[in-house]
Design a protein around this nucleic acid. Structure first.
Length: 443
RNA sequence: GGAGAGAUGGCAGAGUGGUCGAAUGCGUCUGACUCGAAAUCAGAUUUACGAGCAAUCGUAACGGGGGUUCGAAUCCCUCUCUCUCCGCCA
């Protein structure tokens, strides 16, 4: 069973440059530095070389095509006049074959060019700190970590003791890095999902239900492929991929479309499970709900006008923060450095929630401005008032929030000495008025 | 899963091998008429890439890919999607 090659469906007629080749040509040094900052291994010289060759080939092929088109027209006239065209035909056959050969060559160069293009990350915004993970910048801390009069337990201990969390039985069903929630644990998960969606929709995000199985093009458009193909679960037989985040589905809803005047911004929120192979992370976060093959997430997504995207990132991040604030969970906002930001984004803020058992902050949301990166890959444009040419939209995404990690953060931050867990105020109406989770059996 | 029909510009809808980037209608925009509007009349109205300071010019595109041909929206193969009927099913 082999994968269908990408770009074979009817929607995929439009192919836009990932980066404007002219811009790259004229700002080579700048692009080189940006790629270096992102720890990109892309060979820009090869990119430029292929771009040059493609252009040269196209120019000479176009000249020949123009000649052939002219000749064809004359041929048509001659035939109408009833003249013999056999000799003429022979000559054109030669030219036609020559063109076919050149087109083949162009196709090959084009493919190499595109292969490289797809590996180029989005270039970081000027406000992004330069460097690797160590250069990440804490922007603000919100909420005081609670002082416990006892040694706070990790969530997996609390959850199992409460009889609401299990890994062993889930491992029997699937394997490592899967979990199951029982009773009030499952209800708490659902309460969180509902709370998050309600909070988001109140802010103008439209609630969505979207596919979890997507095709190659969707993964490529959002920037997952080709670079992170080994991180995706694949349904080979049917050429589907399981989404690692519903960002993929939301981003692709409008692939190949042009938004009419006045229809931006578009704001969506969707709840889906997320599936990740976590290849190469063996041994990391092996305990608990932190790193799993399947977890739930509420995702926010926006399509906006280019000049508004940086402000929208601040707003989107604020929307995610609001959920943490309402839940009373201490967190901090971190601006990711050039080498740590996501592939598709120019700037990413991570929200990190306080985990008492680990005595540290852990990622619970990631908010990114992808500018026109995804829009170019997916051909998504919009028309302005006074309508000149359609322009590429900017896209943003952010978790609002990762549900599993919120679930565990609540257990850890709201635990009491006896192993019970207080339900945050805002969730109680979603929990049928329940205010505290108590162990089934006294500990 | 089986049988059939279809995919053309913003929309509707012609076009079955040769000035077809594509008739016609609708929509939209501009101009004329009008005090203004409606109606009417005239004109304009796709996108991508390349060349050029620019006007402009060239090339490509009629769901995607491939083939036949000097020449393809039109013929052939293939894939995808949509619709109808049957079967199955939450």
């Amino acid at each position: 069973m082999s994968f269908r090659s990408p770009w074979t469906t009817h929607v995929e007629t439009l192919r836009f440059e990932m980066l404007d080749p002219k811009y790259v040509r004229e700002h080579e040094a700048e692009v080189r530095k940006a790629l270096l900052d992102c720890k990109s291994k892309v060979d820009l010289s090869l990119y430029l070389d292929l771009e040059r060759r493609r252009r040269d080939l196209m120019i000479s092929a176009d000249k020949r095509k123009a000649r052939l088109n002219q000749a064809s027209e004359e041929m048509s006239k001659l035939k109408k006049e009833g003249k013999d065209i056999t000799e003429y035909r022979g000559k054109l056959s030669e030219l036609s074959n020559e063109i076919k050969e050149m087109d083949g060559e162009i196709g090959a160069v084009e493919k190499d060019f595109r292969d490289i293009e797809l590996q180029i990350c989005n270039l970081p915004h000027e406000s992004v700190p330069v460097g690797g993970e160590e250069a990440n910048q804490e922007i603000r801390k919100v909420g005081e970590p609670k002082k416990f009069g006892f040694k706070p337990k990790p969530h997996e201990e609390l959850g199992v003791a409460l009889g609401i969390l299990d890994f062993e039985k889930a491992a029997k069903v699937s394997g490592a890095r899967f979990f199951s929630l029982w009773g009030l644990g499952a209800k708490l998960e659902r309460a969180l999902v509902n709370f998050m969606l309600d909070t988001n929709t109140q802010k103008g995000y439209q609630e969505m239900v979207v596919p979890h199985l997507v095709n190659y093009q969707s993964m490529e458009m959002s920037g997952q492929f080709p670079k992170f193909i080994e991180q995706a679960f694949a349904i080979e037989r049917d050429n589907f991929y399981l989404i690692p985040t519903s960002e993929v589905s939301l981003a692709n809803l409008h692939r190949g479309e042009t938004f009419p005047v006045g229809s931006l911004p578009k704001k969506y929120a969707s709840f889906t499970p997320c599936y990740r192979r976590e290849a190469g992370s063996y041994g990391k976060d092996t305990k608990g709900l932190i790193r799993l093959h399947q977890f739930n997430k509420v995702e926010m997504f926006q399509f906006v006008e280019p000049e508004k995207s940086m402000a929208a990132l601040e707003q989107l991040t604020g929307d995610a923060e609001d959920i943490l604030r309402k839940l009373g969970l201490p967190y901090r906002v971190v601006a990711l450095a050039t080498g740590d930001k996501s592939f598709s984004s120019v700037k990413t803020y991570d929200l990190e929630v306080w985990l008492p058992s680990q005595n540290t902050y852990r990622e619970i949301s990631s908010c990114s401005n992808c500018t026109d990166f995804q829009a170019r890959r997916g051909g998504i444009k919009f028309k302005r008032e006074g309508g000149v040419k359609p322009e590429f939209v900017h896209t943003l995404n952010g978790s609002g929030l990762a549900v599993g990690r919120t679930w565990l953060a609540i257990l850890e931050n709201y635990q009491q000495a006896d192993g019970s867990v207080v339900i945050p105020e805002v969730l109680r109406s979603y929990m049928g008025g329940l205010d505290v989770l108590k162990p089934f059996k006294p500990a």
